[in-house]
Design a protein around this nucleic acid. Structure first.
Lengths: 243, 243
DNA sequence: ATCCAAGGTTGATCCGGAGCAGCCAAACGT
DNA sequence: ACGTTTGGCTGCTCCGGATCAACCTTGGAT
């Protein structure tokens, strides 16, 4: 990871540009928001469930996830995030966090005061629309995850999770299905798919044995992307990457 | 079900009033939207995945659900809906449906042209804020469902689903945990919780044997609400029913 | 009054993934 | 260079929930 600070807006603007046509004034509006950068170590908790939140958190570099805890202590990851993702836009309208946000790798984030963001949205409704759209994509992904953990078997669940992550990385300019980094542990993958890390390990091996993926450390290569999508029941429509 | 048409706004305004302080002008703006009422039989499909949608669908009476299909034909219900719920607000910003909307009972809905709704939101940003909030609540519920199907055992999953539905019904003025109607079949409950209808049946019996619920036809009574919430790991915060 | 279709109920068997245990390899701090 | 920690890997056993198969109940339709 680079030791110098990355441009905090690059990844976000790259994402916004794909789907929304924001004017230079609107982007300047975002740039003029006061911000507070902060670095977190891998595994650090950025936001805890129940906490009152008055800032909006943008992931600038690294990887993060959101998760909830069951009464028996079981952890369910509900989303993975890459640079450019806003991690808690829901606090624009809710005071209290209903889930946790945690880093997966060392990460750099910036915080915007929610109050200033609200004002910007009032002045520049197009910015609000872009962020609203982002919420809707999030919700669509959650729906797909309900399907994934509710109705697919272990092998397919993991294949699907890999496809989605590959697609997200590609959209963020962090690689392609043919070559990307899988930053999370097998334990994390288990917590995202409702499986144990032991079983994740076996399924990854099986996918590799089938020639669907090739692993080298944390680098993953999917040689035959259409075949992998088929095996994963992955239809990327729900990511709404195209307008 | 009453044969005469219900006031299409009553349930929606009841819900909006709980969390948003919309002015009379803003509510009148909603009332002035052109609308097209339509009745559907139980089990009818209102919106199909992949379809282009240019109207917004409000459930006025009856019950509905949203679901996705896996490649093996398995159905995963991702949400249940009661009167007052908007069933597809995401089409405000997405053209194409990424999941299906289906009635559970005979139902009455009204359609608003999305174009007019967009215009209203531009003129009355508070209306947009109220709808945005609704999307965020939806997303929060999806996250809880991921946890439910990913990390809870069958008994708890069903108990949780019952608690959530009871809370939603109560908020909509359709009963209370002490007495409400469960309109869906055990097959539906299975499709929502990632279980088979056979196993749903056994778990419902078990919950009844434990005295947590009492069933009479499709009427459910939860005598000891705190004990049931405990058994279900149900903490209603994620529904964001309070401001 | 009778038929029939849905949905609810119960029993028997099977299997996918959990749980447990232990080992190995790489990365890290000192 | 060395111990320690963290994550990856593998074998074995067990169980929760799926699957298959009937049968029962209820409510419409005729």
């Amino acid at each position: 990871m680079a030791s110098s600070r990355a441009d905090p807006y690059r990844a976000l603007f790259h994402k916004l540009a794909m789907l929304n046509s924001l004017s230079a004034e609107e982007l300047d509006g975002i740039k003029s928001l006061p911000l507070r950068p902060q670095r977190f170590r891998a595994g650090a908790t950025i936001i805890s469930s129940g906490q009152l939140v008055s800032e909006c958190c943008l992931l600038v570099e690294g990887y993060a996830c959101r998760h909830k805890l069951a009464s028996d202590g079981g952890r369910q990851i509900v989303s993975f995030h890459v640079a450019g993702d806003i991690l808690d836009i829901q606090h624009l309208l809710f005071e209290k966090a209903d889930h946790n946000v945690q880093t997966i790798t060392d990460a750099e984030v910036v915080f915007f005061p929610m109050r200033d963001l609200r004002r910007l949205i009032e002045e520049r409704p197009e910015v609000g629309k872009a962020l609203w759209r982002d919420c809707l994509v999030d919700a669509s992904i959650f729906r797909e995850w309900v399907l994934n953990v509710g109705r697919r078997d272990a092998r397919m669940r993991i294949a699907h999770m890999l496809c989605e992550f590959a697609a997200k990385c590609e959209a963020a300019g962090l690689g392609s299905p043919a070559q990307f980094t899988l930053p999370m542990t097998q334990e994390d993958i288990g917590d995202a798919t409702g499986l144990t890390s032991v079983h994740v390990n076996r399924m990854l091996r099986q996918l590799a044995d089938e020639g669907l993926i090739a692993r080298a450390g944390r680098e993953i290569r999917i040689a035959d992307w259409p075949r992998m999508q088929e095996a994963a029941d992955f239809q990327p429509d729900y990511l709404h990457l195209a307008a």
